[in-house]
Amino acid sequence: MSMSVYPAFNPELTGVQFEAEGKLLFDEFEMLDAIAETIESPWFSSFGDDRPIPEDFDGDEDDLEEALGPWDEWYSAQDGLAMVVGLIDAIAEEPDFADQLNEPQEVIAELEAMKVCLEAAIEQGAKFRLELAP
């Protein structure tokens, strides 16, 4: 089962939704983090739940959510937009970055879909975070 990354908003956005599957963003998140680091941008994954997994944890994903408790951290949509635009520009303009991705144009398309949502979030005064879904 492949996982997906998608943006969540607080409060929820009106009039716009994330128009991508987010599977490539999940598959390429480590490379997106590496590109972000190279361009001196916050990491893609830094806008998601980065709480450490307890050392003694050995259950499944549902048990992990229970072990960690609720997660209520939200991030600036402006910061997220700057990160997404930086990644789009870097991948589109630097062949070395594009070559490190399996499907660079499709990754850009998913980032562009996220950009649309983040622009709306700024207009609507919403915060955001990245979440995972199966």
Score class of each variant (00 low, 15 high):
Glu61Trp: 11
Ser45Val: 07
Glu110Tyr: 01
Pro11His: 01
Gln105Ser: 04
Gly125Ile: 00
Glu65Ser: 07
Phe44Ile: 03
Gln78His: 10
Leu87Thr: 01
Glu94Pro: 02
Glu106His: 10
Ala34Arg: 10
Asp33His: 09
Leu24Trp: 04
Gly80Cys: 09
Ser41Thr: 09
Gly15Ser: 08
Asp56Gln: 15
Glu65Gln: 09
Asp72Trp: 14
Ala34Cys: 11
Cys117Arg: 01
Phe26Ala: 03
Gly69Ala: 06
Glu66Trp: 03
Glu37Ser: 15
Asp96Tyr: 11
Glu119Ser: 10
Glu106Thr: 03
Ile39Val: 15
Leu132Gln: 08
Val16Lys: 04
Asp58Thr: 15
Asp56Phe: 07
Gly15Tyr: 02
Ser2His: 10
Ala67Asn: 05
Asp49Ala: 06
Glu21Trp: 04
Glu55Arg: 15
Gly59Lys: 06
Phe29Cys: 08
Arg51Trp: 01
Ile88Met: 07
Asp50Val: 13
Met114Leu: 09
Ile88Ala: 05
Asp50Ala: 07
Glu123Pro: 01
Ser2Glu: 12
Leu118Phe: 14
Ala90Met: 12
Phe97Gly: 11
Gln17Met: 02
Asp56Tyr: 02
Gly22Gln: 01
Ala77Val: 05
Ala133Gln: 07
Glu40Asn: 14
Ile91Gln: 09
Asp89Trp: 13
Asp60Lys: 13
Gly69Cys: 04
Gly125Val: 00
Gln78Leu: 08
Met3Thr: 00
Leu132Phe: 14
Ala82Val: 09
Gly69Gln: 09
Glu30Cys: 05
Thr38Val: 14
Phe128Cys: 08
Ala77Cys: 10
Leu118Thr: 03
Val16Ser: 01
Ser45Ile: 06
Asp79Pro: 04
Pro42His: 12
Phe9Thr: 06
Glu19Gly: 00
Phe57Ala: 09
Val107Ala: 05
Phe18Lys: 04
Leu132Cys: 04
Ala113Thr: 01
Ala34Thr: 11
